[in-house]
Design a protein around this nucleic acid. Structure first.
Lengths: 256, 256
DNA sequence: TCATTAGAGTGAACGGCGTTAGCTAAATGA
DNA sequence: TCATTTAGCTAACGCCGTTCACTCTAATGA
């Protein structure tokens, strides 16, 4: 019998979850040792102690497994980042953004192969919006990696929007640093459509959006370059990254 | 007979070169259509009209072929960039740097798949120096892609160093924009070792090196993000890129 | 309790892949 | 002319992802 009157996971479901975890663990191990292209379904089956065909009971294809892996990695990254941010109080947006920036880099560098897989995956490389829509009502037809990466970037984006609101409340209308350059109507609209939805119902002003995207680009550039080994520094990377971030904050007129 | 008294390429050599070109063309076509992982040696052989094994007369392995491809792409990129820079006179370092920045981006975006292959290739992702040595005496033990990418980055680096010399001659000691943040001895030394060799015999001052690397990171970040589709803008990318570059130059205190 | 059923796993096969070894025939150069 | 180099072939090896038909077992419902 072993019926399931309590509504919890059945014995079969538990076994299944366990096997899935085992498969993913083996895949991740291969990823770390051999890189994205070194992952082999047959090798996973061998390690798990099962026939290759058996894996198809759990994943539709190798590709589906890799996508699932990527999503897990994003969850891990998002979890780490969120935790680090929560070490500072909710009002301290600046400190929380710094925590995000630092944790993002730390995770990527500490999990190079995983990060490599995440960004090099054909679909869903971190688009900052999905058809201009917000994340809340996730559309069905969008690949999950894009959604995850959106969620990740919004983690910092919301903090930035909060920072803006706070600054506005205190009387400062525009962000510090160099003035916003002139742009066409079309670009202005697109920028605000793409990034303006971090706060519900209230679009973030253009100069702030531009400031945010500029900062994002620098962080992304730094992290990708470090992961791919093309930074101009090899041994003092930690200090270099920190210096770059600090210089960036100063550029934007933020005391540090 | 068809002997080769003139010392030029023999008939066989010409045929060989032609076949190699044909193979590379087919590989590139597959790269563009299917992406880096879609390139198949057997498919190339099929298209060239030859047995898979025959290709091994021309390349040691598929990997070797891809490396050769990457080098060709770098040559193409470097050629385009150099040509664009030479539209401005040798003394106009600022304009030449702008040409470099713009052409770099244009090539990467116009050849996404090629660029993808170049940066995602395991070894040699654009390290900015090789053991601190200069490019002139290219060491044997370094993979060719690294060398090519070094050559590419030096194209802009030399111009930047020239810009510094010119500024110094005119009396300005430090670069414009925000002041150089304080860094440790070790980081300072590494930065100068890695990037200071653009001008023979004369190390570029630290603030200038820092300025250059900061700019490089922003350009690289922009280009990679655009190539991978993770820019916050999709339709007005040209204008966005230009705006970002202009804003960056302004940050560094350069009139535009 | 017992027949039914859904799920997990197997084994064999298909077609494709990169790569190697040994062969043949043609072009080359003395 | 003749030895040598070279391009190409065939066949095979051991991987790979994926599919299909099959078995066995454990949970299910009357």
């Amino acid at each position: 019998m072993t019926s399931n009157t309590a509504g919890g996971p059945t014995r079969r479901e538990r076994m299944r979850a366990e096997t899935i975890a085992e498969i993913k663990a083996s895949a991740r191990k291969q990823l770390q040792e051999l890189g994205p292209s070194g992952i082999s379904l047959r090798a996973i089956a061998r390690e798990v102690g099962v026939t290759p065909a058996a894996l198809y009971r759990y994943f539709d294809s190798l590709d589906a497994l890799l996508i699932q892996l990527c999503c897990d990695f994003y969850d891990e990254l998002i979890g780490d980042t969120r935790e680090a941010m929560d070490a500072s109080p909710p009002e301290d947006h600046l400190e929380r953004m710094k925590a995000w920036v630092w944790t993002f880099r730390g995770w990527a560098v500490g999990h190079r192969r995983e990060f490599e897989l995440m960004i090099s995956y054909p679909e869903g490389n971190g688009a900052m919006s999905v058809d201009g829509r917000r994340l809340e009502q996730a559309p069905e037809d969008v690949d999950p990696i894009t959604l995850k990466s959106l969620e990740h970037s919004q983690l910092c984006g919301r903090e930035f929007a909060g920072f803006w609101k706070q600054t506005e409340r205190e009387g400062g209308g525009t962000p510090g640093g160099p003035p916003m350059p002139e742009v066409s109507e079309a670009l202005a609209k697109e920028l605000q459509d793409q990034c303006g939805a971090f706060i519900v119902g209230e679009p973030v002003p253009l100069p702030w959006v531009f400031t945010f995207t500029s900062a994002w680009i620098r962080v992304f550039g730094l992290v990708v370059m470090e992961t791919f080994g093309s930074l101009p520094v090899q041994e003092n990377v930690d200090e270099y990254y920190k210096t770059q971030i600090m210089a960036m904050l100063k550029d934007f007129g933020l005391e540090v």
